[in-house]
Design a protein around this nucleic acid. Structure first.
Length: 665
DNA sequence: GCACTGACCGTTTTT
DNA sequence: CGGTCAGTGC
């Protein structure tokens, strides 16, 4: 029966792990250090729950990234074995997709359309720009990006425009509060939410509608939360609302790996767990199976410099190992060159494979030099993050076309494509139409139907607007019967988007690259169509907004791909590599200058970031720094990171390190 | 309506 | 250095 398909629990779990896996009811806090088999424990726990007759579909596991969710899905699927078709699986999703699903069912109660759009970073910037223009704040005083940062900070603390206005202290914050009000109004009238709203609206929904809250909470009997140290206020309250009744809540986290404080995550949540759930069982996982003793000793020395933390010491199961190296170079190009050279020679001598290596850095501008060298050396590599596929202009255009089809109230998307490619609806015409929309407080799309009544609009423009409306409406109707990918592909051809690309870019190589991204979007849509249970264009857009890139299709190629990985320290959390190069170990970079300037505990978070980097390494760790680094085109001298001294236990005596480090690059 | 030019200016991390 | 933006000229 069921038990027969479930893989039995392995015998090599240590007592603490076994304890965490076997405790199936009531609240539990698992304090799991880096490399202590956390994922293993979580997945076996899910399997164990099912073995003890918990209906799989009533188990919910929440993760913070899509990657983590995907991995957990795969591993649990493995444990559950091949189950007959239609067998329910546990629900494993990110916080944000969980909220989307909840909001789909209830958001009308908050005054949004059921078919709301999710605005990503680029869309948010457009709205922010318009809000600032409205209140006549010049770019020099407050840029859209700055506004978004402030607004996001407010939102993650569940502060809404009225509170923000009274909380604002500096001039900048007062302006931001005014812009925030307009920003939020614009989102709502466009029927859209941003990333923070997904959490905030869910929280608000639960507060305003006890029925919705009870219904959502009743869907699950067991709740697991991974990376609990990264929960922000809204997430914390959502979890509480969902688990309060059944109390079968298991959270897993490591306060030493809390690196999202800037996003509203509060370590206090993990430190406070026992207070909120007094009957909670606490399990500590302190045996590290990942790194050699040499690497772990360094990590322990480093993190000990942080004051506020759950006191714990990771014990290495793997003894010995090569001592980590610190290498310094004269500038960032030789840093990149030498690191790549070292990797190359190991691969050439068959001592290692590309997939054994990770190059980790603090900021997204750092990988450039490494990419160059890797290309030159003809080594396969994957760059995680950075400029996303979905940030490309032409991709955004195509997605905007899709959103105009599915979300008639979405103004940002409509504005983006209303004259792209140029179709005779120029800036002046758009301005007049927009004026009418704003003065009548109606969606721009509706106003397009009355173009003839707009004073000052030339006949040619009225015609153009009419043609555009027919075009969109025609394709909207087709969407009811035909597969989305067909409709979208036709729409792109009808508007002659390829001609637009060829006009904009002179180089044939550019033209080809740009057009192939357009094709890739259509392919992604077709792929989604095939795997989704009930595919809709709107569903695809949700996927894109939440997943960033098409993880499903990537899965095979990504896993199969034997490539060196380049990524930020933030993206590296939860992953492990045989050999890690932690590059750019300099003051100003790690710790980042912004954190050095900020008062309070910003440095502690940078230290945790460094700790995360160090503990990614299984066998070999190399820390590098460059004595000079280009900034705005000019080379500038650097200072070795304070963390290097701490790692070596020489924090009080920097001179000693300088002598010791004469080792040549 | 659109392409081109030169001045200006900034540094983080992500769902 | 590289991206953005206002201003200019067709």
């Amino acid at each position: 029966m069921l038990d027969a398909v479930l893989k039995s629990m392995p015998h090599d779990l240590n007592p603490a792990q076994r304890d965490a896996v076997n405790t199936l009811s009531g609240p539990m806090l698992v304090l799991a250090g880096a490399g202590t088999g956390k994922t293993r424990v979580v997945t076996y726990r899910i399997a164990e729950l099912i073995k003890h007759r918990a209906p799989p579909e009533r188990i919910l596991a929440v993760t913070f990234t899509n990657k983590a969710a995907g991995e957990m899905q795969e591993r649990t699927a493995e444990l559950l074995g091949k189950r007959r078709n239609g067998a329910q699986r546990p629900e494993i999703s990110t916080f944000h997709s969980l909220c989307v699903r909840i909001l789909r069912r209830h958001i009308v109660k908050l005054g949004y359309p059921a078919q709301f759009a999710i605005y990503d970073r680029g869309d948010q910037e457009s709205v922010a720009r318009a809000a600032l223009r409205d209140i006549k704040v010049p770019n020099a005083v407050l840029r859209p990006g700055d506004l978004l940062a402030i607004v996001s900070r407010w939102k993650t603390a569940s502060i809404r425009p009225p509170e923000a206005a009274s909380l604002a202290q500096s001039d900048k914050e007062h302006l931001a509060a005014m812009a925030y009000r307009r920003y939020q109004k614009a989102l709502k009238s466009a029927g859209a939410v941003d990333f923070d709203d997904l959490l905030l609206c869910t929280e608000e929904l639960f507060a305003k509608s006890p029925d919705a809250r009870a219904a959502e909470a009743a869907r699950f009997s067991h709740l697991l939360v991974d990376e609990y140290q990264d929960t922000n206020g809204a997430q914390y309250r959502i979890i509480k609302a969902l688990a309060e009744k059944h109390r079968n809540l298991c959270v897993v986290g490591d306060d030493d790996q809390s690196i999202y404080g800037w996003r509203g995550a509060e370590v206090t949540h993990i430190l406070r767990f026992q207070h909120d759930w007094p009957e909670a069982k606490v399990v500590r996982l302190e045996e590290n199976y990942r790194s050699t003793d040499a690497i772990l000793a360094m990590a322990n020395r480093l993190i000990a410099y942080n004051r506020h933390r759950h006191d714990k010491v990771l014990r290495a199961i793997r003894t010995g190992g090569e001592p980590p190296r610190i290498l310094q170079y004269s500038d960032e190009s030789s840093e990149a060159k030498e690191v790549v050279e070292e990797i190359n020679s190991q691969i050439f001598r068959r001592l290692a494979e590309p997939r054994d290596f990770a190059i980790l850095f603090r900021t997204n501008e750092q990988p450039r030099a490494f990419e160059q060298e890797l290309r030159r050396a003809k080594l396969p590599y994957t760059l995680i993050g950075g400029m996303s596929f979905y940030d490309r202009k032409e991709v955004r255009d195509v997605l905007a076309y899709c959103r105009v089809l599915t979300h008639p109230r979405d103004e940002v998307s409509l504005m983006r494509i209303i004259n792209t490619p140029a179709r005779g609806i120029g800036a002046k015409a758009v301005e007049l139409l927009l004026e009418r929309a704003v003065s009548q407080a109606r969606p721009l799309w509706e106003v397009l139907g009355e173009a003839a009544e707009v004073a000052g609009l030339p006949a040619a423009a009225i015609d153009a607007v009419g043609t555009f409306r027919k075009l969109v409406e025609g394709h909207r109707r087709r969407l009811e019967r035909e597969p989305p990918s067909q409709v979208v592909s036709d729409l792109i051809h009808t508007v002659r988007y390829q001609d637009e690309i060829n006009r904009q870019y002179k180089e044939p190589a550019d033209q080809l690259a740009r057009w192939s991204s357009v094709e890739e979007v259509v392919n992604a849509l077709a792929g989604y169509q095939q795997r989704a249970k009930s595919p809709t264009l709107a569903g695809f857009l949700d996927d894109v907004a939440l997943a960033g890139r098409d993880e499903q299709d990537d899965k095979e190629s990504k896993l199969a791909r034997n490539a060196i990985v380049l990524m930020t320290l933030h993206s590296a959390k939860g992953l492990e590599y045989s050999q890690v190069y932690l590059v750019g170990m300099e003051e100003g970079l790690l710790p980042h200058s912004r954190s050095v300037a900020a008062e309070g505990s910003a440095i502690d978070e940078e230290r945790r970031l460094c700790y995360v980097g160090v503990t990614r390494a299984k066998d070999k760790l190399t820390l590098t720094l460059s004595l000079s680094r280009n900034k705005w085109g000019k080379p500038r001298d650097t200072t070795p990171s304070r963390f290097l001294f701490e790692l070596l236990g020489k924090a009080d005596n920097p001179e000693a390190l300088r002598k010791k480090k004469q080792r040549p690059a």
